[in-house]
């Protein structure tokens, strides 16, 4: 087996770390993935430093010279299939069951995963919003209002992020839309408690997992990554609340009822 070119290894390992982080995994997982890729492919003393927005990686090649690279991470969204795929790839590479070319092809395939069809995703969003409304004490009719609002929210965020709108404005729009739709349903008499329906549908946007990951990263010793994730969580929550707050204000101004 010919030794892979160190520059190619650097690119592959940093790509793996970037993909792990962009799929929403913990910071230490990205760092350990990059290090495992480098060591398995002939790199020595691999060091990786990852934050939610970028990866730095360096190692010494067989010739004793150091190589390093910086990768920037723009968008992040949870993709567990990708995380599991990269985990399997790392195991294969490390156990010697895969070589450089197989790993590169595998990573490429993981990057282009298609995921669930749009209809299934919509149904998932509707189910999540509806059942969270029930879990948080809503009535049946509230859940039936929250479900389509949830599906609409997941569609809207997907379209907006595809067009490069920043997460902050996506969250403002989402929060306003959810609040207005649930308030209108309450006015029409479809929902008995618009508040629970709003919370249920907004569960799709709120950074509950993000704030928990922030604290997990901090506990694991990735202090910079943890603080960055916490800031991300607070900014998303702020966006959603600004949107919802504006919707409540408009509702009051229009004289449709106090909240």
């Amino acid at each position: 087996m010919p030794e892979p070119n160190p520059e190619d290894v650097l690119l592959l390992a940093s790509d793996a770390a970037r993909l792990v982080l962009a799929s929403g995994a913990e910071t230490y997982r990205a760092e350990e993935t990059a290090q495992a890729f480098c060591s398995a492919l002939g790199g020595v003393e691999a060091e990786c430093y990852a934050t939610p927005t970028g990866v730095l990686l360096s190692f010494f090649g067989p010739d004793g010279r150091s190589r390093s690279i910086v990768r920037r991470i723009k968008g992040r969204s949870m993709n567990l299939e990708r995380i599991a795929g990269i985990h399997a790839l790392t195991r294969d590479l490390y156990a010697g069951r895969a070589e450089f070319h197989q790993a590169a092809a595998g990573l490429d395939a993981l990057e282009r995963l298609s995921g669930y069809p749009a209809a299934v995703t919509l149904a998932g969003a509707a189910a999540a919003a509806g059942f969270f409304t029930l879990l948080y004490g809503g009535a049946w009719n509230d859940a039936l209002v929250a479900a389509p609002v949830g599906a609409l929210l997941s569609r809207l965020t997907r379209i907006l992020s595809r067009h490069g709108i920043s997460d902050f404005f996506t969250n403002i729009t989402g929060g306003a839309l959810a609040a207005l739709a649930c308030l209108a349903a309450g006015l029409a008499g479809w929902a008995s408690g618009p508040d629970t329906a709003i919370i249920g549908s907004i569960m799709l946007l709120v950074p509950g997992v993000a704030i928990t990951s922030a604290i997990r990263d901090t506990i694991a010793g990735d202090l910079v990554a943890g603080v960055a994730r916490g800031a991300d969580a607070f900014i998303s929550a702020a966006g959603i609340s600004i949107g919802a707050g504006a919707a409540f204000g408009l509702w009051r101004l229009a004289g449709l009822g106090a909240l």
Partner: peptide, 12 residues
Amino acid sequence: ATAGFAVLFHLR
């Protein structure tokens, strides 16, 4: 609710 969310998280 978790099953619905898991779909959004691309869990197989």
